[in-house]
């Protein structure tokens, strides 16, 4: 027996409604404030590893190296800076993109250097939410499409 089409249609509509809700841009920009985030860098870790700010914040990331010269490159925002011990570096930017952004060391600092990675999380993680909604839609859609198809095929020989 194939999954009940009306059942699936109901689930599909529900998922679609949820999707529309989540995909819509957030109502109004969140109130931005000034945020100074202090991050220390050592081979091969940032501390803190995960930094959270709100959307719209004017962010100052102060990077302080504690062993050797390190750097920071922020994915998505494509900003970078270098910091030698004793000389903290600053990244100043407006956090206008929501989501999770990796930041990574930009100055070779040893073998694990390419994997020296931290995360900046800006506001509500809309990209992830959208992706998960897309996942739900694709899952239901694929199950419905292939399920009913193979259901018909499966019954045919009987």
């Amino acid at each position: 027996m194939a999954p009940n089409p009306s059942h699936l249609a109901f689930v599909g509509t529900l998922v679609l409604a949820l999707a529309l809700g989540a995909l819509a841009a957030p109502a109004g920009a969140e109130d931005g404030s000034d945020r100074v985030v202090h991050i220390t860098a050592r081979s091969f870790a940032f501390d803190p590893e995960i930094v959270r700010v709100n959307r719209g914040d004017r962010v100052v990331i102060e990077l302080e190296s504690v062993d050797a010269t390190h750097g920071i490159f922020l994915d998505g925002y494509e900003l970078s800076a270098k910091a030698e011990p004793g000389h903290p570096a600053q990244l100043v930017f407006a956090a206008d993109k929501t989501g999770s952004f990796r930041f990574r060391c930009s100055v070779a600092c040893g073998n694990l250097h390419p994997f020296m990675i931290g995360q900046l999380k800006v506001g509500r993680n809309l990209p992830l939410q959208r992706a998960l909604v897309a996942l739900a839609v694709v899952t239901v859609g694929a199950v419905w499409f292939y399920g009913t198809r193979s259901g018909r095929k499966g019954r045919a020989p009987d």
Partner: peptide
């Protein structure tokens, strides 16, 4: 000072540098 001393003595001389 900035190159050789600040890492220990601090950029503003307070003796609170990272090293």
């Amino acid at each position: 000072y900035s190159r050789d001393c600040a890492a220990c003595h601090g950029l503003d001389g307070r003796g609170d540098g990272i090293m």
